[in-house]
């Protein structure tokens, strides 16, 4: 067919490129924050935690979460074409808009995260806070740490899953329009959260604990990824088309092909490394090589999580229902 169109908008045709690395980074950091909320809460809640030797270190994570989320939101804000109008997000609530949900979830999560961070602060740190109000708040919240952690799990799930729901609700983009996508984003968010826990953790016990969790999560993530592609593959032509860039060796789709290769290496390799770690014999103190391996495999997971977000954000915009066939 010879196709000639006059009057197309460069951003939407031939392939839409509306959302870029800023949105991808936000989705990654949003998912990571959600994952961390869940994982750090798990760390507090899990039995025998009371005397956990790593409590001293664990408080850094609740403090880190709002920072990560804020960076993510800065990326998101960078993407807004009319930043000065952003207050309109909060003058409406649109029940059917995942975007609106997202805005409100973030709004609700912030105080929660701050409360959580304050509650987690160890006394020696609290004492150094200059502002008495904050100090008082921290002291008052401290007894509620476990309750806050539980709420954080729910909020974390919401945050991580909503990033996926946002994309999956878009019928117009077949690659995103899959019910598995939110589950994928949730699992991936949790696995990156666990990975960051591993990197930040100081003790062998804690590292091994999250390594174990992460093995399950990555396996689940891999399975969901495969299922997602399979879902598209057995779907109609449009969905088959949607995943084509990932399996094309043509020059223009190289980045997508590469992303599959990277995922195909990163995640399984991470699983294998982690498996070796948890089944291996460990001395009281972790050896340097063990440490390196753990951190390296965690890093692989983080890279994988980012690759998933970037690849899906970009490839999703290539996919669509063409009426020019």
């Amino acid at each position: 067919m010879e196709l000639h169109i006059v009057g197309t908008n460069a951003i939407t045709y031939p392939a839409m490129h509306v959302w870029d690395w800023r949105v991808a980074s936000y989705l990654f950091l949003g998912g990571l924050s959600g994952g961390l909320m869940i994982m750090s809460a798990v760390n507090y809640i899990r039995p025998k935690n009371g005397q956990n030797a790593d409590t001293l270190n664990a408080w850094k994570i609740p403090v880190l979460i709002p920072i990560l989320l804020t960076i993510g939101l800065i990326f998101l804000n960078l993407d807004l074409e009319r930043k000065l109008h952003a207050f309109w997000f909060y003058l409406t609530f649109k029940p059917v808009s995942p975007m609106s949900w997202g805005a409100w979830i973030v709004l609700i999560i912030y105080p929660l995260l701050i409360a959580y961070a304050l509650a987690a602060l160890p006394d020696n740190i609290t004492r150094t806070i200059k502002y008495p109000t904050i100090r008082n708040w921290a002291d008052a919240l401290k007894p509620h740490l476990l309750k806050l952690a539980k709420v954080n799990i729910i909020a974390g799930v919401l945050l991580a899953i909503y990033t996926g729901i946002l994309l999956s609700s878009l019928v117009a983009r077949p690659l995103w329009n899959s019910p598995i996508l939110p589950v994928l984003f949730l699992t991936s968010g949790m696995s990156t959260g666990a990975a960051l826990m591993i990197i930040l953790a100081k003790t062998k016990e804690m590292k091994l604990f999250f390594t174990k969790i992460d093995i399950w999560l990555i396996m689940a993530e891999l399975l969901i990824l495969v299922l997602m592609f399979y879902g598209h593959y057995v779907g109609d032509a449009v969905h088959q088309q949607a995943i084509a860039p990932f399996f094309s060796t043509s020059h223009e789709f190289f980045p997508y092909f590469l992303s599959i290769v990277v995922l195909g290496i990163c995640l399984p390799l991470a699983v294998v490394l982690k498996f070796l770690e948890v089944t291996g014999e460990h001395t009281e103190e972790l050896t340097t090589s063990s440490l390196l391996m753990m951190n390296f495999s965690a890093l692989l997971v983080l890279v994988g999580g980012a690759v998933i977000r970037f690849a899906l954000v970009y490839a999703g915009q290539l996919s669509g229902y063409s009426s020019y066939l």
């Binding site: 509306v18 993407d79 807004l80 074409e81 946002l166 117009a172």
Partner: peptide, 12 residues
């Protein structure tokens, strides 16, 4: 007035 330029509608 209300548009923040988030581009969600464009992708949708």
């Amino acid at each position: 007035r209300k548009c923040v330029g988030c581009k969600a509608c464009i992708t949708a």
